[in-house]
Amino acid sequence: MIALALTFIDDILNYNSLSIVGLQKNTGKTECLKYVLARLPLEQKRVAVTSIGIDGETTDQVTRTQKPEIVLREGMYFGTSEAHYRQRRLVSELIDVSDESTSLGRVVTARALTQGKILLSGPSSTLGLQRWMHDMRRHKIDLAIVDGALSRLSLASPAVSQSMILATGAAYSINMSQLIQRTAFVVDLINLDLTSDSNIALLTPLESGMWWIDTDGQLHEMPMVTSLSQQVEFQGMENCSTLYVAGALVDAFLEKVRKNKNLKHVELVVRDFTKIFVTPQQLRLFEKMGGTIRVLQKSKLIAVTVNPTSPSGYVLDSDVLCDKLSQAINLPVYDLLKN
């Protein structure tokens, strides 16, 4: 098992950026981050780490369970807020103060000159996160790691990173088969294929609204604001080949698309998997009718980690969970605490 775990550290080194995403609080995301940070070969790679929004508080704001600070090794770079930088418990050298402001002040980037503890709270918007990652490349960072919350509270999408590790566990559901099903669904979404290069070039700059591309490759804007709107009409879209939703994709909209006979074989494009808020049933029905969903941005899912213990203390059988989940998603699954 340890040998396997080291393999996924090797996988990480193939990418310039990694996000570690928890499906729920207390699914072991922070444990996973600590695990990764402790094992990366710093002599080979310059590593920077940040977190989307407030994270790394000593106590979890929601469940009041203990939440450890992140321990950084000497030589690691990190992005955090001014407030948390002032509370750092290590010696570090400031290399950048960004214009990106969070509720805890601006995001600063520094290099650890000794090992030590830090509370991480980085950029809180997708654009801010992208900028930070871009800045890291300027500072010759080989690997930028994002501790990413996958919650409605976070406006920043972890999907801007090249690779991803997903943390799941009993906190997400204490019913094992439900946990496996729900996790497998998210894995399916993360693994959605990219749309064509020409669509990516055409659609990426569009940050809001709904758009469609006809069979001649012409782009049209739909006369309404969001996919949440009730009055969706698909008039004059007989030759629609691609439908792009810049905002959130929800059940009601997907159902309307599915029931429209002109859009039977439509390719529905969303920015990334975090924009998809549909139930597995709706998605299955949509795909069964001949529709496909594609994304503009995708991360390579490297591994899934599990925390078999729920915040209330309920414990699932780790080995069974790892095996069953691994079979369901066709990817290695690790219980890092156990190992």
Partner: peptide, 11 residues
């Protein structure tokens, strides 16, 4: 700081 690096437990 030299001591810190030598004795992380005393950091």
């Amino acid at each position: 700081r030299v001591q810190m690096r030598k004795n992380p437990e005393k950091q």
